[in-house]
Amino acid sequence: MSETLPRAMNAQERERFDFAVIAGWIPPGERVLDLGCGDGTLLRYLRETKGVEGYGVEIDPARVLGCIRNGVDVIQIDIERGLSGFEDGSFNHVIISQALQAMHATERILGEMLRVADEAVVSFPNFAFRANRAAIAEGHMPVSEDLPYQWYETPNVRFFTLQDFEALCARLRIEIRERKAFDEAGQPVADDPNLNGSLAFYRLGRAR
């Protein structure tokens, strides 16, 4: 019997995987803010597995409705306009899970995240992942498990890599406290994550 090759995860597996990585960085009972929280599944997961006290922020009406159905506290505001109203240091962790690449005000959002929380958790798809580079080399915009959109329908507006993100953090005096990168099968990547990582997770704080 031949050895089974790691296969790419399906959408549900990816979601659970994403949640598990994030949950690993959230101590029990914390106050958590989830930006671009979708229908609140992550917050619900964190509430059930970690007993966190969480709020979500979402702009899409259907997703806000999903949160309310899920019994998740959600605030319908536009993150692009900042987080005024949220008090300084009012959360332990603020999460932005695979949503930063779909927002324009990248710098402002990162700054605001570390204003309202002690630490930020950011996850995003790596545009410099090997398969994405290959797609470009072949003359196409990449479409993959982590970038599941055609160029003409993608909600993504910021295309960046691990290297790019880390350079921005340095410029904004944001300290990278931990980084994890995974390939499409969800396997951790240690060697050259900017090339071998499809999905990146960062735990960030203010540089001291």
Binding site: E53, Q76, F86
Partner: peptide, 19 residues
């Protein structure tokens, strides 16, 4: 939103929809 953020300050459970 004034109400929402005042509730948030007090860590009350609140959902806010802007329809």
């Amino acid at each position: 939103r004034e109400i929402v953020f005042a509730l948030l300050h007090n860590r009350r459970s609140v959902a806010y929809a802007e329809i």
